[in-house]
Amino acid sequence: MRIGLVTVVVEEYDPAIAFFTGALGFELVEDVPARTNDGRAKRWVVVRPPGAETGVLLARADGERQEAAVGEQVAGRVGFFLHVDDFDAEYERMVAAGVRFVSEPRDEPYGRVAVFLDVAGNRWDLLGKPGGR
């Protein structure tokens, strides 16, 4: 058993793809036409970190309820955790790519961490190994 995908609700597909592939360095795994349950056109868009098994399904908000959830999928808490091998290098690369960090890097018992916002406004932890790099 494994988790294959998690969904991030976004306003539009293309800016979300650009953020995840450009700023975060994820791979675009799938971007194919699909249909909603009631037959309307949509896209099936999956991105994931290089070498990862679990991907992120980028789902364009459909209707008022989903539009209200953009950026608030976990009620303002950190809901996603991006583990990296070299925290300092990834942090610097992401800052240079325009990723908005809402906390400075700090050391916690579970690792080096800084909170950033994705393209939709959801909070993520960038996590490195304890003790820095």
Rank of each mutant, 00 (worst) to 15 (best):
50 P>R: 05
119 V>L: 01
82 L>R: 14
42 K>Y: 03
109 P>E: 04
9 V>F: 07
133 R>L: 10
57 L>P: 12
105 P>R: 08
87 F>S: 14
48 R>A: 11
73 Q>Y: 11
32 V>T: 11
28 L>W: 13
64 E>L: 03
36 T>A: 00
88 D>L: 10
124 W>M: 00
19 F>L: 06
16 A>D: 10
41 A>W: 04
97 A>G: 08
41 A>S: 10
112 R>G: 01
72 E>Q: 15
101 F>E: 06
38 D>C: 02
81 F>E: 07
24 L>E: 00
131 G>Y: 03
116 F>N: 04
26 F>K: 09
125 D>S: 04
5 L>P: 10
30 E>N: 14
19 F>G: 01
73 Q>A: 11
84 V>H: 15
92 E>W: 11
39 G>F: 01
27 E>G: 00
66 Q>T: 02
19 F>D: 00
66 Q>H: 09
28 L>N: 00
50 P>C: 03
114 A>W: 04
117 L>V: 08
35 R>Q: 01
17 I>V: 13
131 G>A: 00
53 E>M: 02
56 V>F: 05
50 P>E: 02
11 E>Q: 14
129 K>T: 14
87 F>A: 03
22 G>M: 06
106 R>W: 13
92 E>Y: 08
38 D>Y: 04
14 D>T: 15
15 P>E: 06
10 V>Q: 05
115 V>R: 05
123 R>W: 04
16 A>N: 05
61 A>I: 10
54 T>C: 14
6 V>C: 11
22 G>Q: 09
30 E>A: 07
20 F>T: 08
83 H>S: 15
62 D>Y: 15
133 R>S: 13
